[in-house]
Simulated assay, not measured.
Amino acid sequence: MSNEPGGPAPVPDPYAAPDPAPAAPVPPSGYESVPPSGYEAVRTPVGETPPTYPYGAAPPAANPYAQQPGAGDAPPAYGAPQYGAPQYGAPQYGAPQYGAPQYGAPGYAQTPPPYGAQPYGYGQPYAAPPTEGMAIASFVTSTAGLLFFGGLPGPVGLGLGIAALRRIAVNGKAGRGWAIAGIVVGAVGILWLLAIVAYIIFVVALIGSSGSGFWDEVEQGFEEGYEQGTDGSGSDQLPEFALRTDLVAGTCLTTYSWEYDMADTEPVDCAVPHEAEVVGLITMTGPVSLDADDAFDSAYNDAWDECDQLTEGLLPDYFSNGSIELYYPHPDDFAAGNTSAYCVYYGDETGMTGSATAGTLELAASGTSS
C-alpha cells in the first residue's frame, strides 16, 4: 500500500495509540441527579406559590429534554427543585397525587374514651344522669315537716339539702334544684318552729305575771258562757249573784275583784301594799238591765258617770295610772231594797299603799302621793 496522494487509503496501524485518547472514567461524587421521590415530586420551592388549575384540567407534563446537572455541579439547596424534576402537580409513575392519602397511611389518631364513658354513635340517644336521692329526700322532709309537723323536721331537711349539694358536685348527678328547694323550705320550717316556741314562752310569761287573777277571769268566762248557753237567749245575761254589803268607802282591797259579788277579794289595811280601794258608794237610780252588753242601760250609765266624777275629785287624772270599776246589785236584790253600788279604784301596777279617800295614796309605778 502507498501513502502518496491519490493512492489507496492507508491501512491503520493496529499498534498505534488511538487518537484522540479516551477519557479516563470519573468516580461518582454523590451529587448526581436521582429520580425524584414521592415527596420531592409534590413539594413547592421556597418562596413560590403552588399553581392552581381549573376543575378537571390536568397539570402540564414534565419536559423530558430539560438539562440535567453535571457531575461537577454543586448540590442543590435544601428545598430547591432539581433540574429536570417534574413540575408541581405533574403526575409521576408510581408517585401519589397531591393531596391524595398514601395507601395504608393512618389517619388522625382518635383518643379512646375515658374509663366508664359510653361513646355516642350515630342515632344513639343521650342518656340523662340519674337524680340524687338525697336531694329528693331533703325536699320531701322539709315540706312534710312544714305542713304537718309545724316545721319540726326543718333542720333535718336543711342538713339533707346541704349534703346533697356536696354529693352532686362530686358525682355529677341531677337534682340540684330539689336540694336547693329542700334547703329553702327547711329554713322556713325552722323559722316557723322558732316563732311557735317564742309565742309559747310569751304566753307562759304573761300568765305568770298575771297571777291568780288570770285564772279567775278564765273561770268567770267559762261560767258566763255556760250560763249564757243554758239561758238560750243568745245574749250575755247576768248570772245570779248577791252583791256583798260589808264594804264602805275607804276600804282597801287585797286584789282586783273578778266576780260580780266581789267574793274573791278581802279588806286589808291600807298601809300595806294592795291593789284596789272602795272610793265611794253610789245610789242606783234603778235596776240594771239583765243584758250585760246593753249599751243603753240608763241606770248603769248614770251610776258610772257619778263614780267617774267622784274618783276624778279624789285623784285628778286618775285614768293615766289606773281605772275604776262599778259593782252593782242584781236586779232581784235591787227590788229587795239593796240599791247601793260600789265605786272601786285600782292602779295599773300592783302594790300601791295608802288611801285615796284619806289623801295618802302612793302608786307603785310613780311613787308619788295623791
Rank of each mutant, 00 (worst) to 15 (best):
M1G: 14
S2A: 07
G7C: 09
A9P: 11
V11T: 15
P22Q: 06
V26P: 03
P27L: 03
P28M: 05
P28V: 08
S29D: 12
P35A: 10
P35I: 01
E48S: 14
P50S: 06
P51G: 10
P54H: 10
A62D: 14
A62V: 05
Y65G: 08
Y65S: 06
A66H: 07
G79A: 04
G79V: 06
Q82N: 10
G84E: 11
A85P: 01
A90G: 02
A90F: 05
G94E: 12
Q102L: 14
P106S: 04
Y108T: 08
A109L: 14
Q110T: 15
T111H: 08
Y122L: 07
P129T: 06
G133C: 09
M134K: 00
A135G: 09
A135M: 04
F139G: 03
T141F: 05
G150C: 05
G150I: 11
L152H: 09
P155F: 10
G159N: 10
A163K: 05
L165W: 02
A169P: 01
G177D: 08
G177Y: 03
W178G: 00
A179T: 04
I180C: 00
V184H: 05
W192L: 15
F202E: 04
A205E: 10
I207D: 06
I207R: 07
I207P: 01
G208C: 05
D216C: 03
E217T: 03
E217V: 06
V218T: 04
Q220H: 12
E224Q: 12
D231F: 02
D231A: 13
G232I: 00
D236W: 01
F241P: 12
R244P: 02
T245N: 04
T245Q: 13
G250A: 00
L253A: 09
T255H: 11
Y256C: 05
D261G: 03
D261Q: 02
A263Y: 04
T265S: 15
T265F: 14
E266M: 01
V268M: 09
A271V: 00
E275G: 10
V279M: 02
L290D: 15
L290G: 15
Y300Q: 08
G313V: 02
F319A: 14
F319I: 13
G322Q: 01
S323N: 12
I324W: 07
E325R: 13
H330E: 10
P331G: 06
A341Q: 03
Y346R: 07
A356H: 00
L361E: 00
